[in-house]
Design a protein around this nucleic acid. Sequence first.
DNA 1: AATCCAATTATTGTATACAAAAAGATTGAC
DNA 2: GTCAATCTTTTTGTATACAATAATTGGATT
Lengths: 226, 226
Amino acid sequence: MAIVILKNMERRRADIIADEIENLIFAGQYSDGDRLDEIKLADRFGVSRTPIREALQKLVVSGLVAQIPRRGVFVRQPGPIELLEMFEVMAGLEAMCGRLAAQRISDKALAALNDANHRCSNAIKNGDSDAYYLENERFHKIIYAQSGNAFLEQEACKLHDRLRPYRRVQLRLRGRMDQSMREHEEIVKALENAETTKAGSALLKHVAVQGEKFHNLIASLKMAAE
Amino acid sequence: MAIVILKNMERRRADIIADEIENLIFAGQYSDGDRLDEIKLADRFGVSRTPIREALQKLVVSGLVAQIPRRGVFVRQPGPIELLEMFEVMAGLEAMCGRLAAQRISDKALAALNDANHRCSNAIKNGDSDAYYLENERFHKIIYAQSGNAFLEQEACKLHDRLRPYRRVQLRLRGRMDQSMREHEEIVKALENAETTKAGSALLKHVAVQGEKFHNLIASLKMAAE
DNA sequence: AATCCAATTATTGTATACAAAAAGATTGAC
DNA sequence: GTCAATCTTTTTGTATACAATAATTGGATT
């Protein structure tokens, strides 16, 4: 008898709204320091202030906005320093996932990684950057899952999602997609051979913002600010 | 002229309540699966349901409770597997902090580490375990800060605080406090000599739940369940 | 014209009211 | 006696009302 985990499809409105506001912030609809007007949001979503406020409380905890008592809730777009810090942690988490996955990964997951890589290659050939980003994300999330640590997987996913808007920028550099592909293959090889250390260091290098990637990130932030 | 960062001392009631409920959960006042009754909590804190609900939303995001739509909010005490996963991530984060701190730590912070260690020793001699836990915490938080990565520091602190109730258990093993002290000294030495890898591995080993620590943790969980 | 103060207006935070759904109790059939 | 269906109660989720605080505006004064 199969065990069925039925995901609660019915979500609370406040939760849906929290996601939507999050997307608005990620999409750059708000600048750093903008106040999130409860009444305007309530009008926008066609609800009262109550679910809006519950949604905002969630965003406060997840760090996307800052709340000043009796003043309101303000969006907090990370500046260059915080972004570098977040990428540094992301690299560390990916390395952690890689080290664990090297010991724990299943054959099926290895096949899935190769599959994702293959589709990445095709996307590059076709110049389809959207497809590339999608498969790239699949590649990394497989590794998170194969860490065999659900808590780590969750944390890595959270940060990955939060950095998504900035990751696209990273890949716009000339030849960066090709190099990224080579790194992916190196990572898979290390995982296949259960080379713990190598898998970790390959992922660290792959994700870390160093050298040219650093300058690229800073430059793109300046452009976004204009 | 000194720059004064005035921390908003006035906190929202909902935030204070969120902290208090969090403490109740940490203190073991609720078992896994218990429903957090909004009305009872409202009575307890002498407020209406509104601030209670805002507080609960925060706890949902921080992962302490799970919300089932139209059913309520239920406390989610981590089971043995999730605990091990969390300790595994904690060890990884501490190692990350250690590697970075080895490159970035200040002389002043090194002195503070030695100071904390010294007070740890004294606490052991006096059999004052409360003082030991306090200084041990100070020791680790200094390292988080000296990673030079505020985002990492914050994440490490969050997880550290969440694991606090279970860490005490770890140190009850015979001779564990002495061994822990030796490990602290090894960590400081690596940091002093800017030995990146060694600082990381020493912290990993220090925090990871392995061997006897594993059995101790599992056993204590069983006792708590009785 | 610039600045300070008072009155007005917005906005947040909390309480209460109400609708919808779930849990629990009660009755009735078998 | 057990099970099922219906009715009642409880509880969640949302809207609205109101109080307290912050922002704003419009003079009055220098």
